[in-house]
Nucleic acid binder design. Structure first.
Length: 285
DNA sequence: TTCCAGGCGTATC
DNA sequence: GATACGCATGGA
């Protein structure tokens, strides 16, 4: 699928608030971005198609635009291989949310003592701006499931269709014909989402709704509850105020915020959620 | 073997 | 609205 299928291309060019620091080099892009860590961003349960390479690089894709990105020596410097400047600006600067100042976000969050620790623990987390359908379908598959198996199901899905399937490509499938995914009870949720998206439900339109209305619209789909809806909104519609409450975040709330979340995260609850999610998942095991 | 996983639908009160 | 339970599959 061509990159023009992304819902809001050229967002970086339209809405840049921070200076992009990059150079064109060796047929790729050398990116300098201090608030960015590949493990913390690409292997933290936001997206399920990135594979870690022996040197700490990652290979994966946004819809069907592939990428290999590697650490380029010093900390905070990365090489995006075989990427033109135009593709970098139109796809990857947006996908990696390079127009958002995470340094400023972390300073704001760090007014809160627990969040200060979470931000210091993994300061290289960024919110990936994924395709809305890819994020929605991925998180439908994620429910009551573990990350290695989620990756396996999505890998089988992409292998079968020769890339991430569109709603159109899935329109003829039934839970039975999707048996090759070994997705269990989630297969019928995928086909229900496909059916509704082919019959009026419109992700691009939902993305423009206020968060509460968007959540209600997404929850019409069978198998989409509050948590999956918020993940679809946070990772697939860049609604930073979405706050997915999974088992880990429920532990965060019970153990650290029995009296509610601090005001310093207002408007960026989803980003704060990622720091807290990663923190509790990695210190309690 | 048993427990559990980035939950949700359904039944029941 | 709250709580209890089943659910497909397979990693640990």
């Amino acid at each position: 699928m061509p990159t023009t299928d992304r819902a809001e291309p050229r967002r970086y060019l339209q809405k840049a608030k921070t200076k992009l620091d990059y150079t064109v080099k060796n047929g790729g892009i050398l990116l300098k971005q201090p608030d960015f860590d590949l493990d913390e961003t690409l292997d933290c349960g936001q997206a399920f198609r990135w594979t870690r390479l022996p040197d700490g690089g990652y290979t994966g894709a946004c819809l069907n635009t592939p990428l290999t990105i590697r650490p380029a020596g010093e900390k905070g410097v990365f090489l995006l291989e075989k990427v033109t400047e135009q593709q970098f600006l139109e796809v990857w600067a947006d996908y990696f949310d390079l127009s958002t100042d995470y340094g400023e976000l972390k300073r704001r969050f760090s007014e809160d003592e627990t969040l200060a620790k979470a931000c210091a623990f993994a300061g290289g987390i960024r919110i990936l701006r994924q395709d809305s359908w890819e994020a929605l379908s991925s998180f439908i598959i994620s429910q009551n499931n573990n990350i290695p198996r989620i990756k396996g199901i999505i890998a089988r899905l992409c292998e079968h269709y020769g890339g991430y399937p569109t709603v159109e490509q899935l329109s003829g499938e039934t839970p039975e014909t999707l048996g090759f995914l070994r997705a269990g009870f989630r297969a019928k949720y995928i086909t229900d989402a496909v059916s509704r998206l082919q019959n009026g439900l419109d992700l691009a339109a939902i993305a423009k709704l206020p968060t509460d209305e968007a959540r209600a619209a997404l929850m019409q789909i069978k198998g989409v509850g509050p948590k999956v809806a918020d993940c679809a909104m946070l990772f697939g519609m860049y609604k930073l105020d979405a706050f997915p409450k999974d088992v880990w975040v429920k532990r965060v709330l019970a153990e650290w915020y029995p009296n509610g979340l601090p005001d310093c995260i207002k408007g960026a609850e989803g980003a704060a959620q990622q720091y807290l999610f990663h923190y509790i998942r990695n210190i309690e095991r």
